[in-house]
Amino acid sequence: MSEKTDYEAGLGSNALKNPQRIVFITKKTSAKVKGDVGKQLMSYPHVILREAIAFQLLVIAMVLVALLWDAPLEQLANPLLTPNPAKAPWYFLGLQELLHYFPPLVAGIIIPTLVVVGLIVIPYFNVNIQGKPLWATNPAGRLRVVIATLAALVIVLSVFRAWTVLVPTFVIGGLLLFSYPAPSGDRNSGQFLGSRPISWWVMTWFIVVALTLTLVGTFFRGPGWSWVWPWSSHGA
């Protein structure tokens, strides 16, 4: 994003004449823009109709579920009666699970801030934009970096005994190593995993960890944040 040379602007946008839209084209990664646009459809009626149908399907589904399921309501709020466990809404239970392992400053402030900052900067790094396969250049050197990173991650997570983070990390890390092209040139890992860019791996790791933590926090945590099985009497 910083180097000017990444972009070329089509000029000729004198609005007083024939108004034209300026099209920004990336030199290196403009497959999207350069390619044939293909068939186009008028928004009215084609988009309007589809959106209207989507809206109707959504409302029908919502009404059906709202008829069958009841919103929870517990006793009146009582500051003197702490439920055990006191749980946040489900979308924050991943964070609460992290708080179980890491100090509040790390789990409650630093990690969420890093996630938000990480999301914001995604489109401003050329690696993410070019999306070249991770193993396409200098595979041996990258393998060393990957192994070192994974090892550091596993050590930190083990020290904190954060095993609900560790397990999904093992799974994704394992797949990542497995996707390394075999020296014989035989693509044992298949085209799909082998051709994923680094951004794909990081995001997939993030999603799998977040999902695991949220599910564990929602269904497998009981009094004192101890492990319970959802079907045991402690659950819910």
Binding site: L73, E74, L76, N78, L81, A86, F92, Q96
Partner: peptide, 16 residues
């Protein structure tokens, strides 16, 4: 809703 669920979820969250 100001029930137990609400009160403690917000207490836990804002403590962070």
């Amino acid at each position: 809703p100001w029930d137990q669920l609400a009160f403690w979820a917000i207490t836990v969250g804002t403590n962070i």
